[in-house]
Simulated assay, not measured.
Amino acid sequence: MMKTLLKLIVLAILVTIGVGMYRTIVQPDDLYATTGNFPGCPARPSCVSSLAKDDVHRVAALAYTGDALTAVSMLREVIERMGGKIEHESAGYLHAVFVVTQLKLRDDLELLVLPEGAIEVRSISRFGTRDFGKNRERVEELRRAFEAVPQPSSTIEPQN
Rank of each mutant, 00 (worst) to 15 (best):
V97R: 15
F132S: 05
V99P: 02
A12P: 07
K104P: 06
L94W: 03
Y32L: 12
F38W: 09
E87S: 12
G92T: 04
D67Q: 10
I156K: 01
S123W: 04
V78T: 11
E120W: 12
T70W: 05
A148P: 01
P150C: 02
T34F: 14
L75H: 03
V149Y: 01
G117A: 05
D30P: 00
V56A: 13
H57I: 08
D131R: 00
G117N: 00
G36Y: 03
I124F: 09
K53T: 14
L94Y: 01
D29W: 10
D108M: 03
V99W: 05
V78C: 10
S49V: 04
Y64I: 00
R44L: 14
E141I: 09
M2F: 15
P152C: 00
L6D: 08
C41S: 02
E120A: 14
L62Q: 04
V19M: 13
E147G: 05
P152D: 01
V26A: 12
Q102V: 14
S50F: 06
L103E: 12
R81I: 06
R144L: 04
I25W: 13
R58Y: 15
G40K: 05
I86K: 03
G66R: 02
M74A: 13
E80M: 08
A61C: 03
V99Q: 13
V10I: 15
V99S: 11
D131H: 00
L114H: 07
T155R: 11
E147F: 05
A148Q: 06
Q27K: 10
E110F: 02
A52K: 10
M1D: 15
S123C: 07
E89G: 04
R126V: 10
T70I: 10
Q27R: 12
R44I: 15
R106G: 07
H88L: 02
S123E: 01
L69Y: 13
G117V: 01
V10L: 15
I79N: 14
R23C: 09
V19F: 13
V72N: 06
S50H: 08
T4E: 15
K134R: 07
R23D: 10
R136P: 03
M2P: 13
I17G: 11
S90Q: 09
N135M: 05
T101L: 14
L31T: 13
V139A: 08
E116T: 00
L142E: 11
A118D: 08
D54V: 02
G128K: 00
